[in-house]
Write a protein that binds this DNA or RNA. Structure first.
Lengths: 259, 259
DNA sequence: CGCCACTTTGAATTAGCTCAAATTCCGTGG
DNA sequence: CCACGGAATTTGAGCTAATTCAAAGTGGCG
């Protein structure tokens, strides 16, 4: 577990080597890949503690005192918002390179649960250490701000999706978003494995699990997706653009309303 | 919408402030009011340019190159998200002390329109100047991060509201949120003036303007609100807690679903 | 093999939408 | 000051997308 004192000992550009993993990850590092660059920067500058996670593990919990941000190095997480009256709402999904925990900054405690959807690894980024590191490497501040900015924009898109699309279009848009997210991370996108149950998807998308199921069946009937044999969580997307097209087409013909 | 994350920190009874001279604002400044403190800090450290805005004025527009953040010193703004296929979605409302423009950081251009709902004033905070100022005054970074964090939490609450509440409860929650927002800023809350048309509210809340109107009529019939004579935009809220109670009560009895 | 959780599909119900008509408000010009 | 016209709002009636309730079907795993 790296302490602040240790952290400083790494000269910028020198990576703290971990036996086994570091070499492999450096091999995988392609310059120009913003996500990999960010991970690389964080590793070099902060040598973050790594924490293995498995499906269902809680990275942080609502109400817990805030002190760390987290960056997802592999796997998938869902962010679950909780209301005082007991409602639960999946409000975001996180992929490799995404940051978790920004919601805790304002009042020094997290306002959501962050739960792993799969085996993976998060890096622990103590907030104070990050701020301290920004003095030497302003790039750290830049990547953090970009991540926060992106999160704000992303949640606005979610809200727009829920407010303006039909259920079936929302499901299609969700699949498109998932495919795009993993494509941007260099993973194959033609065949995706959803890490969520129908109930979780429905919760995230603001519809019942039955409606999710019906929408998926309909999308399959329309050839926009295919179920990979054995297991209804593996889905083939022959053409992501076709999915996008479906979403656009399913809009009301005249969406021009606001002033 | 429920903005749980915003609830803490602010001491009620803080000064309601009007745009005006620095001297008058200093007189009105009450220590312990986080919003006033932030404005004070920004004024002292950055002496931001002030920009008067009137209803309909665009503070920034989607696609425009990012270089400034803005802080609302008075008035109200809506944030409108735009999709490539022409949908418009009001995704946030901004009050005195709120920051605008975070969405522009990630890709160096704004992704939304920010539009004034009323006469007011924004302060222009050049992002680079802000970062530079943070070296001398780390508190600047703190308030900025808190604002971003709050915005993330707030949008998650909006998403939860849209996904889990009935239309009528959403309208009630919106009124509660508006009342609470201005209460926290020291303004009277028993009688509020909505700055939005039924169509704008409906867009923000994910329903048609007719449903907004019907919901308001029903809430009035149930004595949870009253229309102030002459003008359907002035609303009296006899008891904010009663509104909150209505929202909670209108939940499905057994909201326990996820896993 | 058999249980259990998840998923699919159907049928009936309903919340909210669409379409339409009346009403109110407000600014503008006479 | 009042009349007029357009825009916003309200309200009603019918419709539809999505929900609820229910029953089968499927797969994973001890």
């Amino acid at each position: 577990m790296p302490h602040l004192a240790e952290m400083r000992t790494f000269a910028p550009g020198a990576s703290p080597r971990q036996p086994g993993t570091a070499a492999r990850e450096n091999l995988l590092h392609a310059p120009g890949d913003a996500i990999a660059d960010t991970l690389q920067l964080l590793k070099e500058q902060l040598a973050p503690q790594r924490r293995a996670i498995r499906e269902g593990d809680v990275v942080y919990r609502a109400g817990e005192a805030f002190s760390n941000l987290y960056v997802l190095n592999s796997g998938y997480c869902k962010i679950v918002n909780l209301s005082v009256d007991g409602r639960e709402q999946v409000v975001a999904l996180k992929f490799r390179g995404d940051w978790l925990g920004f919601d805790g900054i304002a009042d020094q405690q997290y306002t959501c649960d962050a739960v792993a959807l799969d085996t993976g690894e998060v890096w622990v980024i103590p907030y104070q250490a990050l701020l301290a590191g920004c003095v030497a490497r302003p790039a750290l501040l830049t990547v953090m701000h970009e991540a926060m900015s992106r999160e704000i924009a992303s949640e606005r898109d979610s809200l727009m999706s829920v407010c303006t699309l039909t259920a079936e279009a929302r499901v299609a848009d969700f699949l498109r978003y998932w495919a795009e997210s993993i494509a941007r991370r260099g993973m194959r996108t033609d065949r995706i494995t959803l890490r969520m149950s129908r109930a979780e998807m429905g919760n995230y998308l603001g519809m019942t699990l039955e409606t999710v199921s019906r929408s998926l069946s309909r999308l399959a009937r329309e050839q926009l997706i295919q179920f990979v044999e054995k297991g209804r969580r593996d889905i083939r997307i022959p053409c992501v653009e076709a999915l996008q097209g479906f979403v656009s087409r399913s809009l009301a013909p005249a969406p021009r309303v606001l002033q």
